[in-house]
Nucleic acid binder design. Structure first.
Lengths: 344, 344
DNA sequence: TTAAGTAATGTAATCGGTTACATGTGCCCT
DNA sequence: AGGGCACATGTAACCGATTACATTACTTAA
């Protein structure tokens, strides 16, 4: 039987530390928040006591007193499986990395329509210092209302006139894609587009990229972001008398439909037709052949969103205009693009 | 100029409500927590005041006083892109739905190894009433330590001898898969396995399913959960003199490799070989042909994990043995399985 | 008639910190 | 010697709720 060991099971408070170190609670508190004016010996005593007692400041009490929660909210609308499965995890990872790096915590709120969003969001807002809002979520009226309130927000992947945001430069991505196809020697290029902001930006970029090479798209078909529609569009395009040699598609997800259609029509990709899409979602690696695509830097986007949020916190930055950042996408060349076969 | 409107911008506390309603704070508090013994008239006054003032109890103060945070943690290890992208979003959705339904809040912690997990987890643990731990995360020593502590946990997709968990019945899934192939008329069936618990359970189920039909696998190749290894295994199997007519693969991800290999070998699926895999991740819909697969009910798993956690909260349930639940997977028949071609 | 019990409400301690303000000490300068 | 000041630390109010215990006013039973 050694001497009784210090009991660590009961939570220990700042008062315990103060008593143990022979100082006041204020001094301990100052120590924990990193206040500079503490003498060496006092500092040492407190440090020793904290370690000996295994003290950890209670974050709730701390937030209550300081009105600073060190916690960020992430608002997502559960939406469709295709969307969230493809992008959410990666964005999340970026946000989480940014948060963890600064000792912040992340609060996830997924809106799926089942529960009154207002109630959820009110609670959400009370628990965090501000929120990151994923593009599709902003379409919900309650989220839009929250974003318009004094609650600090940064939008992810959604451009907005009066709120700070970080998004992908889809227009640039479109240009990069078009140029790649042109540089491979394609001249008969068609676009299969998505609607919404991102889709039309991509298409506009495609067009611009072609135009700067003196080309113009053979056809531009809008298919929202729907795989089946994209497939039908591909069918129409590829069964025309003088079909395009390359297809620019607005998303990997749609491109999967295009690939499937090509396959059923007995066409081989990229020999008979090149396909270049957008996103570099995980599915781009698993199709056959694997998709050449324009990569969206999603995890960076999450990371940057967090950092932007964090920077927007200090008083002076509140007066400046909202920050907006556009990230550059990047070509990932896999196996669906190749020079056109001479078929004259 | 109408009369001055009540100012709602400053946060209003329970004291304001008490004063406005002409009662004590205790009574207001009782009202908000749903205490039964409040007279009709008092109740009405309080309700009116709360509405008029737009009062919302401060969750932080509430948690501090009640030691009940109404918040659950979800611990995930960022891990590989393939894993998290494929499963995370769906599980998350289930958890979030369960939480939102009961007015709980979810705190997400992603461990990516960059930061000392211990620090993150300590803060995490202080902010929640307990945690859900995703399978792969438990492999981290710090998470394991947390799970072993008094912190209440439920494991997701990981069987454990002393902790409550919810997981998929992979063995059953394997059996279902095997039976499906058998019922299609296949007799020469090979397995491409994954290691870890889930992989070997699936394979064991496959074997058992075959055995109960008087068959045994032509071959069983372990490839961890690696796509390239799976592809190589498929090559080996399919190029043998008397190849199997069907392949049971331990995951969709690996199956993509198998499909790719079949395609390069000039084999058509399912005419030349059937492929049946496991997960029904989103990629299963986008391969060509789309994968027949055994679906894991991931979002249900998340939902159930939350519910289990919530039920485990009351004092009496703490004495019982930890709950463990196995969810039944389900066959999703797409286009990679068909009766074998008669090739005698 | 009165003791005891019950229902509704109030008082004040408490949760575990932060921080404005007060205090005490030592040093420099006039 | 004494005023002024900076520095280190202590005291106590406060953040916004919950809740044990006290109080009051009615019932009801003996």
């Amino acid at each position: 039987m050694k001497r009784a060991r210090r009991e660590r099971s009961k939570r220990c408070s700042i008062y315990d530390v103060a008593r143990h170190a022979g100082v006041s609670v204020a001094t301990v508190s100052r120590f924990t928040v990193g206040f500079p004016g503490i003498s060496r010996p006092t500092r040492a005593k407190i440090k020793a006591s904290i370690e000996e007692l295994g003290f950890r400041p209670n974050p709730l009490a701390r937030s209550l007193a300081s009105r600073y929660k060190k916690s960020i909210g992430l608002i997502v609308s559960a939406g469709t499986r295709a969307y969230s499965d493809l992008f959410l995890a990666e964005i999340l990872q970026g946000v989480a990395a940014g948060a963890a790096h600064l000792g912040w915590t992340v609060h996830l709120t997924m809106l799926n329509g089942a529960i009154e969003p207002r109630f959820i969001l009110e609670r959400h807002a009370d628990l965090v210092d501000g929120s990151l809002i994923l593009d599709v979520a902003l379409e919900l009226p309650d989220v839009a209302a929250l974003a318009a309130s004094p609650h600090r927000c940064v939008l992810i992947n959604h451009r907005h006139k009066s709120l700070p945001f970080v998004a992908i430069d889809n227009f640039l991505g479109g240009k990069i894609a078009a140029r790649h196809l042109v540089s491979l020697g394609h001249t008969r290029i068609a676009c299969i587009g998505g609607n919404r902001e991102s889709g039309s930006d991509r298409i506009a970029g495609y067009k611009e990229g072609l135009k700067s090479s003196g080309l113009r798209p053979v056809a531009v078909l809008d298919c929202e972001f729907d795989q089946k529609l994209a497939r039908r569009a591909a069918h129409k395009l590829l069964s025309s008398p003088h079909p395009p040699t390359a297809l620019l598609v607005a998303s990997d997800w749609m491109a999967c439909g295009v690939l499937a259609e090509a396959s059923t029509m007995g066409l081989e990709v990229p020999r008979d037709v090149s396909v270049l899409s957008f996103d570099d979602a995980i599915i781009a690696e698993t199709t056959w052949p694997p998709l050449s695509t324009i990569r969206q830097p999603l995890s960076e986007m999450g990371r940057i969103a967090f950092d932007m949020f964090h920077e927007s916190l200090d008083a002076e930055s509140r007066k400046r205009a909202p920050v907006r950042k556009l990230l550059q996408p990047e070509l990932v060349e896999r196996k669906t693009t190749a020079p056109p076969t001479k078929d004259l």
